[in-house]
């Protein structure tokens, strides 16, 4: 189901800096969006969506922001637009992010969605509306298909090791 937010949700709202010294993912996750919605983390079921306005994830470069959202069970974020570093971090950790302003305007909190990432097809089941978003560039799909940047680097390092042998 959809959790809806407005414009300019910044990384301090997603995860306040004062918690960044916590290394346990579950404990960190508990503080996700806490200033915005009380007990947000405990309300989420795995596979839920965030639908938000412009500039989602603006602010600091903390990777903990997409990380806590993924950790508490968010699968996809659909926004009118994302901040650059948030988008980069989300892709690098394998959290899907899609821009689709039309869906954001016509979707309410609690709606159910169905998403086909490979085709960029989005469906709001509650309203029966279908949307098409920009297909992701092949370059980024390759990183996502590798399972994020960690696996990508692993592959690169193996290549260089083979060359050095």
């Amino acid at each position: 189901m959809v959790w809806k937010f407005g414009d300019n949700i910044d990384t301090d709202q997603i995860i306040p800096a004062k918690y960044l010294s916590i290394s346990d993912p579950r404990e960190l996750g508990r503080h996700c969006m806490e200033d915005k919605r009380t007990n947000f983390a405990s309300l989420i079921s795995s596979g839920d969506f965030i639908v938000a306005g412009n500039n989602f994830g603006c602010g600091s470069s903390r990777e903990e922001a997409p990380f806590v959202l993924k950790e508490i069970g968010i699968k996809v974020i659909i926004a009118k637009s994302f901040s650059r570093i948030f988008l980069r971090n989300a892709i690098n950790i394998g959290l899907s992010v899609i821009d689709c302003a039309a869906l954001v305007d016509e979707t309410s909190e609690g709606d159910e969605l169905e998403i086909d990432l490979s085709k960029g097809k989005l469906k709001n089941i509650t309203t029966s509306q279908i949307y098409q978003s920009q297909p992701m560039s092949e370059f980024l799909l390759q990183i996502i298909n590798d399972g994020g940047l960690v696996n990508f680097v692993q592959k690169e390092l193996q290549k260089t090791r083979r060359v050095n042998k």
Partner: peptide, 18 residues
């Protein structure tokens, strides 16, 4: 330009990034 932790790890390992 600012990057996150996974990028930072990749940058330290490879010396290059996308």
């Amino acid at each position: 330009t600012g990057i996150g932790a996974t990028d930072l790890a990749a940058a330290m390992a490879l010396g290059k990034l996308w």
